[in-house]
């Protein structure tokens, strides 16, 4: 069964009395353990779409099923609980908590959301740190980490709860090209290792090449979906 199913998905904002149609009747399905990118110019609706899939916002019209759950009408509390159980997030600006060390940032969802016991938490956090190659930096605060290292910690934080789906909005926008490719490849490795579905948005062509399926959005409409050939990205 598909992990994400969108049918006639639309989102309309009212901004300054003007109606803005951010998404216009999108239809798509995303399979489990896939590595998907949504690409398109600024204002094409990528972030809006990721916000809807991440239950951070509600669609104006249409149906959206994520991880087997209809998410259109979740209350604030239900949406928060669902995100904490099933979804991971990676942000463009990393969004690590500055008062917590790398270890504690990764531990945060296990403490504040999942209430795991201490020994389990430690084991899982260390495993996640090892997976993203940040074990040596575990006691450093975000201020003392480079951009690439911060994003690795963010990837580990998203994966530590073992979510079915990780959403990454422009995860490489604040990184140089080499680091950006490293982060994207790390995400793909994590998908391979844990079977987690990754959906990310980008407008960086070198990064979008890494995706298995690339959906292109323009003016809130899905204009194309390309599947990469075996062993490579969408563009081969």
């Amino acid at each position: 069964m598909s992990l994400v199913i969108a049918k006639d998905l639309s989102k309309t904002y009212v901004s300054g009395g003007v109606e803005v149609k951010a998404l216009k009747g999108l239809n798509f399905e995303i399979e489990p353990a896939s590595f998907i990118s949504f690409v398109g110019p600024s204002g094409s609706g990528k972030t809006t779409l990721l916000n809807l899939i991440g239950c951070l916002d509600k669609p104006t019209r249409g149906q959206l099923v994520v991880a087997g759950r209809q998410v259109n009408d979740l209350s604030r509390k239900e949406a928060a609980a669902f995100r904490g159980q099933a979804l991971g997030f990676i942000f463009q600006a990393f969004n690590l908590f500055p008062v917590l060390t790398a270890f504690e940032n990764i531990e945060y969802p296990l403490v504040m959301i999942k209430s795991e016991n201490k020994s389990n938490r430690k084991e899982r956090v260390l495993k996640a740190l090892e997976a993203v190659g940040m074990l040596e930096q575990k006691d450093k605060y975000p201020d003392h980490l480079s951009g690439g290292q911060k994003q690795r910690v963010a990837v580990a934080r998203a994966l530590v709860i073992q979510p079915k789906l990780v959403l990454a909005d422009e995860p490489t926008a604040n990184l140089d090209q080499k680091t950006a490719l490293n982060v994207i490849r790390l995400m793909r490795d994590m998908r391979d290792e844990f079977g987690t579905t990754f959906i990310f948005s980008t407008h960086d062509p070198r990064v979008m090449d890494e995706a298995e399926v690339t959906h292109t959005l323009v003016d809130g409409m899905l204009i194309s979906s390309e599947t990469a050939s075996a062993g490579g990205g969408a563009n081969g």
């Binding site: 995100r83 969004n95 908590f97």
Partner: peptide, 16 residues
């Protein structure tokens, strides 16, 4: 505000 948004996005309940 952004930190609060991050907490909420990660699934922290409003009460916490």
């Amino acid at each position: 505000v952004r930190e609060i948004g991050t907490m909420a996005a990660l699934g922290t309940l409003p009460g916490k």
